[in-house]
Every structure is written in structure tokens, then in C-alpha cells.
Design a protein around this nucleic acid. Structure first.
Lengths: 188, 188, 188, 188
DNA sequence: GATGAATGAGAATTCATTCAT
DNA sequence: TATGAATGAATTCTCATTCAT
């Protein structure tokens, strides 16, 4: 017989943004504690809603994860678009990509870690596969606009590899170093 | 667990290989169920030793994980060395790397998944950092023998990116496709 | 559940058969999953009505159960009447009862299990007592038409015992075996 | 990873009778609240042990149930043996059985309800099947010693039916009424 | 009338870890 | 040295029921 509790807090019913509030709390939790830290409990606490509320709106962990991934994808798209808009017009693709790598691994590191937390989790969670696939395709498509298929693939893989190592090994990557690599690939 | 199973087995003290048996069971568990499936219980079961034995030899989960990572690193080294011994003498580095990518993502997929399970986990587990760093450095060092630093870095990143995407998106990568990329990078 | 599914369907107010639809869904659920599986949720799903609809028409679980029991009672009456109409005219009561036991434990087993699921549940659910009592009385009354009170009671108990054991132990009972018992009782 | 805590409460470790204490608590719970009331939680409370202790010794509900059924079977055997020892020597089997029915439905009602709670539950719980089958066979075997097979079956079913109705409908059954039935069956 | 969002309670499990023996 | 019993914490999930709209 659970020692009750709260009893006081008024019903606070009918919160039309409840679902979204919870989803947003979910990405905050993932950003803070990683996917392993994502539980209905931690999300409920982060969103300041009762536990039952999280299980009502997101029946299981996959639901929660999927919502988080979709929200993160939106944020990610905005961040990258903003970044690229500023960088690409320079007409120096290697430098633009190198700058982006530094930007992501240094100043936007939190966003990068969040994105990779979700992206990498896709390998064992079918619910995230779709988002992860879209993620990769978007990068490839954008680079394809500037060069041939093989070169685009090379750039994509190198970019992916750079970011993964930055994430896994806890490293920051300087624009110069990254630019040199991208320039090497495009120099042909 | 109250269910007996070792009820009969006598004390069997002083099993000098106990520690290693457990470590080997640990990588089997990780290979089968991922790191999330790694618990003292599952390892004890896989190694057919009593639960207490796993907690005795490996005080906490990180210990277990570290032992698994080190064992996997040895296996990985052997696999790659064997692979490269056969491939590198051909004097066509792009083809050798491309063949290796296909080998790993298609025929040695289990080993690849195990390695990445442990490698990627390093981002949130200090206990695995060292192994992961060594892992990356080894690859870079080996490639440095054949080319300049920037090119080696490019190859390393591209290789890493290819393998990560293969793992995360559940894809196999054909030697031809990979070779084309590596050739592009080296074609300068 | 946050998963829509009735998203499109318009308000559909004033569905005069709504109550009965739900009750019928309730016995389907009990037949499929037993009383333990009877929840407002499962019934709503089976009846394809919104969750709130089940709680609106049947305030609590007992209400739902009672409605299911009454519907099952009707079905049961029809089944047995049909059965007995065919059997009794033969003027061999033991054979008629024996045939009925086989019919119920073999061919009409689903109905038998449903009936006993509800009948036996009465022991801890006052809401079902009345139906259960009526059930037993009906059997006794019908048998009383053919014989004296003690013999009727004997037959009733034996019949009950046979069916209970068939249900609990998962057994089918052959007409011959049952007939022998009833004949023994009536042979006096 | 668990924010530690406790450290204080002395642990009350190594209770060699822990397992049995819990099993006994389980039948107390079933007797009081029925099988629906049997949860690891309620048992833990009844036995005054921590929740984890019940799940350690009895991994799932079936384990708990099986232990309860076996203990109840022992009690039941003792009760019935004691009862029959006193009754059977009289050489009037109907009267002995009739007296037993009254004894069980009136004075030993608690035991009767417990036994039937477990017996009837066997219909949907394979873990209880074996015990239930043994239960029925024991009764049949004992009666077989006094009469032919068909008569024994008749008595068994009638006895079963009487007790089931007593349990389900909440009735007490007088020795006279029951004796009349058994006498009717044996009067042939 | 009718509905579905909301929520407190609790169920079944699993586990890392401690510690008596 | 080695082990397995013990336990508190937490996790996922399900529900009956209430109530704003």
C-alpha cells in the first residue's frame, strides 16, 4: 500500500500542450544523461508531470525515443541550415565543411552529442532507424549538389567519421585540420 | 535466483581460469544482447559460474565491461592483422581497404557489431576510453605507413564513417563502392 | 492510450445499441482471455468504441461483469434448451445427460469454459451471485421434473462435478462414461 | 546507476527459513484475499520481509502459487486423513461422506475455500495442474477402495459438485442432505 | 450525453551490490 | 578465497476511475 503522497497538488488537468512538453523533456533528459537515462520516470520529473502522464502519452520507451528523435531532428535541421547558409556561399566547400566540424565539435557540442546519442542508438532500435536513415541521406543529398557521387560519398563518410571520433573520444576538431582533409578529398 | 543448477557441483576452489572464463562469457553476452544485456547475472549464466563469482572477480559492471573490451581488442587485432596481411602486399591500398570494408560489413559482421558496440559505448564510459583511443590510433598508425598525415587522416575518417553507417543503418557495403572512395582520396 | 484510431469517426451520438455492443464485447473478451483479461480497455477495443464509452455505460468492472454474465446466461439457456429438446424425448434421462456432458466438454467446450469462468467467479463477486444461483436452480428444477428431490440433487451434483473437473483438469468426458454414472444414480 | 542510500537498516540477513516463511505467508494471503490478491507485494507484507526477498525466492507468480498449492495440499491431506480416520470405521460410507461434507462446508470452511481457490485456479494456470490432478485422483482412489469404478466416479463427481456449489454459492451443506445423496448413489 | 485526457496506485521484474558464512 | 542469500531501488507497463469539456 504505497504511502500516498502529493494528494495536495491540484489536478492540473487538460494541458493541451502536455504531449509536447513531455517530448521536449525527453530530449533534455537524453542530452543530460544519454539514452540510458531516458525512462518514463526521469522524463516525468523533467517535465514536472506525474509518471502516469508520460506512460499515457507515450506507451513505451520506443514511443518516447521516437518523439525525442523527431524533435531533435527538427532542431538539428535548423542548426545545420543556419550554419550552412552562412558558410556555403563562400564557394569554398572544404573550408565550409571544416568550419562546420569545428562549430559542431566545439561550440555546438551539446547538440552534436544529443544527435549522435540518438543516431547511434538506431543500430539496435528499429524505432529510430527511419530518422537515422533520413539524417544520413540529407547530408549526402546536400553534398551531391556540389560534386560527383563518389566524391560526395567520400565527404559524407569522412564527415561522419570525424564527428563520430569527436563524440566517442571526447575530442574537439579544429577547422584547419578538418578542412585539410576535405580539401584532400576534393583536390583530385 | 533461488533456482538451483549448481546444487551438485562441489566447491571447485582455485579455478585459475575462472577470471578469463568470465571475461570471455562477457563478450559473448555483449555480442548476443548488446551492452544493455550485460549484467552480472547474464554473464554468470553464460560462463556457467555462480553469480557471486562474477561479482567477486569483477567488482562492478565497468570492470566487466573493461575486461570484455580488452578481450575484444585482442580478437579484433588478430582479425584485422590476418586480413591486412593478405590484402596489403597487393600494393593497391584502396582495393585492400575496400575489400576489408566488405569483409567486415558482410562476412565478419558479428565481429564488427561487437567491436562497435564496445567502441561507441566509450563515449559515456571512461573505463572504455583508453581501449577506444588505442583502437583509433592503431588504424591511423598503420595507414600512416603508406601515405602522408592528411591523407591518412582522410582515410581513417572515411573508413570510420563507412563502418559506422554500416553498423547503424544495418547496411552491407560492397568492396567496389568502398574502393572507389578510398581511391578518390588517394588519387590526388 | 494516446494512439488515435477513432480519430476520424465523427461524434456518432445516440447509439442506442452501444450498451449492448459493449456487453457483447465483454463476453468475447472473457471467452478469449478470462475474467482477468476483462478491463475497460480491452472491452473498448473489442467493441471498437472509445474507452470513455465503456466507463460511461458501465461505471465499474462489476457492472461490466454482470452484463457479461447476464448475456452469457441467455446464450447458455438457449444452448441447453436446444440440446435438451433433442435429447429428452428419448425418454432415457441418463443417456440424455451423458450425451449433454460429452457435447459440452467436447464440441461446445468454448461455451462451457465461458460459463464456468463466470460461474466460478461468483464466489468472490457478489455481483455475479444472483446469476450463478439462478443457473444452478434452473438445472435442479429441470431435473426435478423427472424424478424425486434427492435423486435430482444427486444428478445435479454429479453433473456439476463432472463439468468442473472437465474444466479444471482440461479433460473431455465421453458420453458413455457420464451415462454410466447417471444411470447408476437413477438405477435405484 | 542507483543513487545509493540505506546503509543503515541492519539487514536481518541469513534467515534459513526465509523461503518457507514466505510460502506460508502466500497461503495466508490466498486464504484471505484469494488468488487475485496474491502478489509479491502482499506476500512480502504478510511475511514481514522486504519485497526483493519474495522475488528472490520465487521468481514469478507461478512459483509463488505453486509453493502455496503444495503447502495447501499437505495441509489438506492432513485434514482429510484426520477426518476420514474418524469417520470411515463406522462402515457407513454415505454417512461418513455426508459428515465430511458438513464438516468441510461448515466448520472447516476456511480450509475448503483455500483449497478450492487453488484447485479452480488450475484451469488457467498450468503450474497448478499437477497438484489439482493429484487432488482429484486421491479422492477417487480412496473411494475406489469401497466400491466399483462407476460408483466411485459417481461419488467423486457428486462430492465435487456439492463442494463447488457450497463454495460458489456461499452455502453450507448439512450432513443429512449430503448423506441422502450419497446413500442414493450407493443404494443400487 | 459522451469522450478521452489525466493520474495515482500497484504489478511483475530485474539488478548491482553487499555481506554472512 | 568464494559464494549465494539478501535487499533496496528502479523500470516498464497496465488499470480503474475521475473529470473538464
Amino acid at each position: 500500500m504505497a504511502t500516498d503522497s502529493h494528494a495536495s497538488r491540484p489536478g492540473r488537468r487538460y494541458d493541451p500542450e502536455r504531449r509536447e512538453r513531455i517530448a521536449r523533456a525527453a530530449i533534455e533528459v537524453v542530452a543530460r544523461d544519454g539514452i540510458e537515462g531516458l525512462t518514463h520516470r526521469t522524463v516525468a520529473q523533467q517535465a514536472d508531470v506525474p509518471l502516469g502522464s508520460t506512460t499515457y502519452h507515450f506507451a513505451d520507451k520506443d514511443d518516447l525515443l521516437k518523439a525525442a528523435a523527431e524533435l531533435a531532428e527538427d532542431q538539428n535541421r535548423e542548426t545545420l541550415d543556419a550554419l550552412l547558409v552562412g558558410l556555403l556561399p563562400e564557394e569554398d566547400l572544404p573550408a565550409a565543411l571544416g568550419a562546420m566540424v569545428e562549430e559542431l565539435t566545439v561550440r555546438q557540442r551539446a547538440q552534436l552529442l544529443l544527435d549522435y546519442e540518438l543516431f547511434l542508438a538506431a543500430r539496435s532500435r528499429p524505432a529510430l532507424r527511419e530518422t537515422a536513415t533520413r539524417w544520413v541521406r540529407r547530408a549526402a543529398d546536400q553534398l551531391s549538389a556540389y560534386t560527383d557521387a563518389t566524391t560526395a560519398a567520400s565527404l559524407t563518410w569522412a564527415l561522419e567519421g570525424a564527428l563520430v571520433q569527436a563524440v566517442v573520444l571526447g575530442r574537439e576538431i579544429r577547422a584547419d585540420d578538418a578542412t585539410a582533409v576535405f580539401r584532400r578529398i576534393l583536390s583530385g
